[in-house]
C-alpha cells in the first residue's frame, strides 16, 4: 500500500510582525492555500490499516497482540537484567562477606558499588531500553504505512 494522497489546507506563512497589528482583525478571513496531495514521503498512515486497527478486525487485533507481546518481551528482558544485577548484590554480599569488606583507596567496595556505580548502570539500561522501544515503534508504524 502506498501513502494515500489527500488534499490538505495549509496556512500561508505569517505576515511580518510589524504589519501584524493592522492585519489581525477578526472580521477578515485568514488567507489559506489549498494544496492537492501531500508531499511525498510524509508519514501519513494508510487509512485502511488504520481502520482495521481501530475497528479491531481479526487482523487488526492480531497486529496489536503481536506488538504488545513484542514490547512486553523487551520490557521483561530488561526487568530480568535489572533483577539479576540488583537482586544479586545483597545475596553476593551476604554469601561472601570478604568481597564486601575489600577496600579501594580506603573505601569498602560495597559502599562504592552501592553508592556510586549502581545508578549509572540503571541509567544506561534506561537509555538502551528507550532506543530499543522507539525503534520498535518506528518499525511498527512503517509496517502499518506500507
Amino acid at each position: 500500500m502506498r501513502p494515500v494522497r489527500r488534499a490538505t489546507v495549509e496556512r500561508v506563512p505569517g505576515t511580518p510582525s510589524h504589519l501584524k497589528g493592522d492585519l489581525d482583525q477578526p472580521t477578515k478571513p485568514k488567507r489559506q492555500r489549498v494544496v492537492l496531495g501531500g508531499p511525498e514521503g510524509m508519514p501519513v498512515p494508510s487509512l485502511r490499516s488504520r481502520m482495521e486497527l481501530a475497528e479491531q478486525t481479526s487482523w487488526g487485533e492480531m497486529l496489536i497482540r503481536d506488538l504488545i507481546n513484542a514490547l512486553l518481551r523487551w520490557s521483561t528482558a530488561f526487568a530480568l537484567i535489572t533483577l539479576v544485577l540488583l537482586g544479586g548484590l545483597p545475596l553476593l554480599f551476604w554469601q561472601q562477606p570478604d568481597i564486601a569488606s575489600f577496600t579501594v583507596v580506603g573505601v569498602p567496595i560495597a559502599w562504592l558499588i552501592l553508592g556510586v556505580f549502581v545508578s549509572p548502570v540503571l541509567f544506561a539500561l534506561g537509555v538502551m531500553y528507550e532506543r530499543l522501544s522507539e525503534r520498535h515503534e518506528r518499525e511498527f508504524v512503517d509496517m502499518i504505512e506500507n
Binding site: 508519514p43 498512515p45 488504520r50 486497527l53 479491531q56 487485533e61 518506528r138 511498527f140
Partner: peptide, 16 residues
C-alpha cells in the same frame, strides 16, 4: 478492553 489496549500500545504517530 480491545480498544483500550490499542490506545495504550499503538505508537503515538498512529494517533489513537
Amino acid at each position: 478492553v480491545n480498544t483500550f489496549m490499542l490506545r495504550m500500545h499503538a505508537p503515538d504517530r498512529l494517533g489513537f
